[in-house]
Design a protein around this nucleic acid. Structure first.
Ligand code: MN
Ligand code: MN
Ligand code: MN
Ligand code: MN
Lengths: 224, 224
DNA sequence: CAATTTTGTTAGGCCAGTCTAACATTCAAG
DNA sequence: CTTGAATGTTAGACTGGCCTAACAAAATTG
C-alpha cells in the first residue's frame, strides 16, 4: 500500500510522530499531538488505534507510540513531500518562508508522486528546505540533522545557523527583520540566565542582538 | 462562505454541473454525474440534496438541477483553479496535456487562493488552458467559448481548432501523434455518414486524416 | 394508453473523523 | 505510599460520503 492511499489524517499522524524525534529525543504524547493538530486527545487516541490496526504504529493503551518500519517509510515520504513543497513555494512561486508551512501542510496530501519528482527536478534536487531542514531523498535517505539549540552553545565560538523551527510564522518574520536565516554566521556573546536573554553577534553585519528564550530554542547552530 | 470551505465532493459536483452547460445545452442528469464521478446514482442524489440544503443548487425530486448564483460563483472559481493548474503543470512542470487532468482534479481542492494568484502571475495571466478551454478571470469573467464540433461543420472551409475535450487521455495522445492541438488549422474534406468517418486536411502539413465519430465529437473548431 | 424500461430517490448500513462526557491509568507531590 | 492532578481511553453521538436494495416516478414503446 502506498502512502497516497492513506487518509490525510493518517499521513499527518505518521509525519508528526516521526518529526517528534528528529530534533529532540522526547517521544511524542497523545496530548502533544492533539495540541499540534488542533483536535481533542480523544480524537488522536482513536486515530492511533486505527493506525495500529493498519500496522503503521505499535501502541498499547497508555503506552508509547512507535512507528513500524512501514510507518517510518510513509512518514519520511510525507516529510519529503512537505519540505520539497515548501522549497518549491519559496523558490518558484515567491512565497516568504513564513508563509509556506500551512500551504505545504495541505498540498502534501494532494500531490502525486510524479509531481513531487518533477518539482524535485525543477529545483535541482535540493537537500534543505527554506528553514534548513533536510529533505529526504526519494529512497528515504536523509542527512541526519546537525546542530544544537542556540540556547545550549558556549559563548565566543564562530557558529552557523543550520535550521530555524518553522512552527511560528510570526517568529520567522521577526528573524527575517533581524537577518537571521539558515547559513547566517553568528557568535553567542553571553547567556544571561535570570534575564533569560541570549546575546548574539552577527560579525558579517557588525550587529549585536538580544534573543528571548523561545527564539534561542528555535535556532539550531553548528560550529563553523 | 468561501469555496475553499466546501468539501471536495461538493466542489466537484458544482464544477460538473456548471461544466455540463459550457459546451452543450443539455442539462446534467444524476446518472451522468454519477457516471463521470465514478459513484452510484444514489450517492449523487444524496449529494445534490445536501447542496440544495446549503443553497448552492435548486432541485426538486425528479426535477432539474440548477446552480444558484452562489453555486455558480463557486463553480466558476473551481473551473479557474482547475484550468490554471493544468496550464501550470504543462508550462512549468513539463507535463503532457494528456497527463494533467487527473492531477488537477485533486490539486484544485488543495490549493489556496494565494497559490492560484501566484500561479496566474507566474504564467502571465493565461486565458486558455492546454486543451483550449477558457480560464475564468479572478472575478469570474469568462470568454464565452467559441466553436462548434468538428462533426458538425460544412466541408471545405478553413478552420482552426479552438478546443479539444480533455475527457480521454488516450485520445489526447492520439491527437498528439497526428499533430492536432488547439490553434491547428484544418479543413473538413467530407463527412461520410454511414462509415461514420470525417476526413480532414491539414494544409500546413499537407496531410489528410480520417477521424472516427468520437474524435470528431471531441474537437471544436471555428472559421479561420 | 398501458406496460415496461429507465432513471432517480429513499431507507438503512458502514466507515473515518470529529466531538463531549465519563471513566481508567499513570505520575508527582506531599 | 497515598492521593489528587494530569493524561489517556472508551462510550456514544453526529456528519459526510459512500454503498446496496427496495421503491417511486418518468420516459419510451408496442
Ligand atoms: Mn498535512
Ligand atoms: Mn520547513
Ligand atoms: Mn476534483
Ligand atoms: Mn483542460
Amino acid at each position: 500500500m502506498s502512502v497516497s492511499e492513506l487518509s490525510s489524517a493518517a499521513q499527518d499522524y505518521l509525519k508528526m510522530i516521526w518529526s517528534a524525534t528528529e530534533w529532540s529525543a522526547t517521544p511524542i504524547t497523545v496530548g502533544a499531538m492533539a495540541e499540534r493538530m488542533g483536535v481533542k486527545p480523544s480524537t488522536v487516541s482513536d486515530g492511533i488505534r486505527r493506525l495500529a490496526k493498519q500496522g503503521l504504529v505499535t501502541h498499547a493503551p497508555y503506552g508509547s507510540i512507535e512507528l513500524t518500519q512501514t510507518g517510518k517509510d510513509h512518514a519520511v515520504e510525507m516529510v519529503r513531500r512537505h519540505r520539497l513543497l515548501e522549497t518549491f513555494l519559496v523558490n518558484v512561486l515567491g512565497y516568504g518562508w513564513d508563509e509556506v508551512h500551512d500551504e505545504a501542510e495541505i498540498l502534501e496530501h494532494a500531490v502525486s508522486a510524479m509531481m513531487i519528482t518533477r518539482i524535485d527536478e525543477l529545483l535541482g534536487h535540493p537537500v534543505r528546505d527554506p528553514h534548513g531542514d533536510p529533505i529526504p531523498s526519494p529512497d528515504g535517505q536523509l542527512r541526519r540533522p546537525q546542530g544544537v539549540r542556540l540556547a545550549a552553545v558556549d559563548p565566543n565560538r564562530p557558529l552557523t545557523i543550520t535550521r530555524i523551527s518553522d512552527a511560528d510564522p510570526d517568529m520567522l518574520r521577526y528573524f527575517t527583520e533581524l537577518g537571521l536565516a539558515p547559513d547566517t554566521r553568528l557568535t553567542v556573546l553571553a547567556h544571561r540566565p535570570y534575564a533569560d536573554v541570549t546575546t548574539i553577534r552577527l560579525p558579517d553585519r557588525d550587529l549585536d542582538i538580544d534573543l528571548g528564550p523561545s527564539a534561542a530554542e528555535s535556532i539550531w547552530v553548528i560550529a563553523s
